[in-house]
Write a protein that binds this DNA or RNA. Structure first.
Lengths: 110, 110
DNA sequence: CAGTTGTATAAACATTTCTTTATATGGAGG
DNA sequence: CCTCCATATAAAGAAATGTTTATACAACTG
């Protein structure tokens, strides 16, 4: 109905989307995701994506996990991370829909 | 070949990707994109996405434009913005590929 | 040309995000 | 238990980003 813009702050759909995209918006994290693309990886290996600075990798992995893009599994003292492929696919679909002329938000958009 | 990570800083593909995703990673900008989804809009209307704060909208529009997600067209003293649908589709494809197990970077990834 | 309108830019500030260094936690092995 | 190792968290600093207020610019209007 409305031609342009609705209040957007406080739209939980949009906020979640923004969080996910923000998580993608950083080269080191993209590097991590690329490393996870073929399959699960151990945290220790992923440090390589952050020039072997372990706490830095941990920080970025947490972001990715909090954004829901990545899942963690504990195995003894090792942590294994993997892509949440469904979440990534959802994002892809959202962008597809946007390119096709609609971005569905909680508020029914603009 | 490599199982995990390659140096990622300085990969222009990855950096461009990160810039685009970062541009998507903010609610007001997502609101703008949603408003642009059905078609071209005048800058003055898009201010609504930023609570009618014109310079703020201008700032976010610039980011979107610099990221290559949005195009600008001048018509007299009005500016009209529109989605770069191809860019958005490309991003969607990239995410699709990632979900399917490969993220192609300049370096051939990890 | 002077005034007005739509939009962009600049400067200052506030906030968030990333990075580093140091330390804590939790599990395995002796 | 005590130690070691993989990982997480905390605190402090650095850098980037978003927001405001004020001003500039460019194009139409009289």
């Amino acid at each position: 109905m409305a031609t342009t813009c609705a209040p957007v702050e406080g739209d939980p759909t949009l906020e979640r989307l923004a969080t996910m995209f923000a998580a993608l918006g950083e080269t080191k994290r993209l590097g991590i995701l690329a490393a996870l693309a073929p399959g699960e990886q151990c945290a220790c290996d992923l440090s390589g994506c952050c020039d072997d600075r372990q706490p830095l990798a941990s920080f970025h992995l947490r972001r990715l996990r909090e954004a829901g893009l990545v899942e963690a599994r504990r195995d003894g003292r090792w942590m294994h991370y993997s892509l949440d492929r469904e979440a990534v696919r959802d994002l892809a679909d959202t962008l597809s829909a946007l390119a096709d002329g609609e971005l569905r938000t909680a508020a029914g958009c603009c």
